[in-house]
Amino acid sequence: MVDPVFFRLSDVPAQPWKNGGGLTREVVSWPPGAGVDDFLWRISVARIDADGPFSRFAGIDRVITLLSGPGVLLRGSFAADADAAVNAPADAHALTTPLAPFAFSGDVDIDCALQGGPSEDFNVMSRRGSVNATVAVVEQTGDLPADLPAITHGLVLAVGSEWEVVAADGARHMLPSGAGLWWADSSQTLQVRSRTDTPNSENQIPNAANAGAGASGRTGLIVVAFDMLAPKR
């Protein structure tokens, strides 16, 4: 059991890609010590600096969310989202709207094309048949807090503004932009409230374009929940 762990993206070590096209910050992988072939779920942030292919992850379901930058055009053998990709070719998705999660299979061969410069993306992976992942975004709540459902394995990340997170036991956490909490095997019922409508300049999400999602007018709290499935008999 791991109770909520505070993190700042700026403190997470960045690992450059082998092809030189970007870098990845792995926030957390579960279970501890698991590698690429045996993790159940994994959360990371990637900076994409150049056009090129995505790594293929057979048996893994993925959700990607644009954090900052102009975004990328994803091309692969998945159905096109006509509402999100105006004039995009078939089997493409324009990941150009910040804080709009897009789910796809890791079995798909995908390449990406930058849409005007480097971009930073939030990535969630879950092992198909063992874990179901959901990624949602809570918008500004004003004076009234929002109650999240109980989550046993999950993460919250503040993007573009500061958030107050209060646990059922009364523990209180202040999350500036680019900071969050993750936990595992520990049911958490959280109450969340946005603290400001403007980005926190001291704690912007680190990225090559030097602009957080708040710069586009979109801020929020990313909420990830993992549902651990019972083994099939």
Rank of each mutant, 00 (worst) to 15 (best):
D3V: 04
V5P: 01
F6G: 00
F6Q: 01
F7S: 02
D11Y: 02
P13R: 03
P13V: 05
P16Q: 07
W17A: 11
W17M: 02
W17H: 08
G22K: 00
G22F: 02
L23G: 09
E26T: 08
E26D: 02
V27L: 14
V28D: 03
V28L: 11
V28T: 12
P31G: 11
P31F: 08
A34S: 15
G35K: 11
V36P: 03
V36S: 10
F39Y: 15
F39D: 06
R42T: 10
R42S: 04
S44M: 06
S44Y: 01
A46M: 05
I48A: 09
D49A: 13
G52V: 11
G52P: 04
P53Y: 02
S55F: 03
R56Y: 03
F57D: 01
A58D: 15
G59A: 12
I60A: 06
I60N: 06
L67K: 00
G71M: 05
G71C: 04
V72E: 01
L73N: 02
L74Y: 08
L74S: 04
R75N: 12
G76P: 11
A79W: 08
A79I: 15
A79Y: 10
A80Q: 14
D81I: 07
A85N: 13
V86R: 11
P89I: 15
P89A: 13
A90R: 14
A90V: 15
A90L: 15
D91R: 14
D91S: 13
H93V: 09
L95N: 05
L95D: 00
T96M: 01
T96S: 11
T97K: 03
T97V: 15
A100W: 04
S105I: 12
G106F: 13
D111R: 08
C112I: 05
C112V: 10
C112N: 08
G117M: 14
P118V: 06
P118N: 10
D121Q: 03
F122W: 13
F122D: 01
S126K: 01
G129Y: 11
N132R: 13
A133W: 04
V135H: 02
V138S: 02
Q140F: 10
T141Y: 05
P145W: 01
P145V: 13
A146S: 07
L148C: 10
I151G: 05
T152V: 14
T152H: 04
G154K: 02
G154C: 09
G154L: 10
L155I: 12
L157Y: 02
E162H: 09
E162K: 10
W163R: 01
E164Y: 00
E164V: 00
E164D: 14
V165Q: 01
V166A: 03
G170N: 08
A171L: 02
H173W: 09
A179L: 07
L181M: 09
W182A: 06
W183H: 10
A184N: 13
A184F: 06
L190V: 12
Q191D: 00
R193Q: 10
R195W: 00
P199T: 09
P199N: 05
I205N: 01
I205V: 15
P206W: 11
N207D: 10
N210A: 14
G212L: 03
G214M: 14
G217V: 12
T219D: 07
I222P: 04
V224C: 12
V224E: 03
L229A: 03
K232E: 14
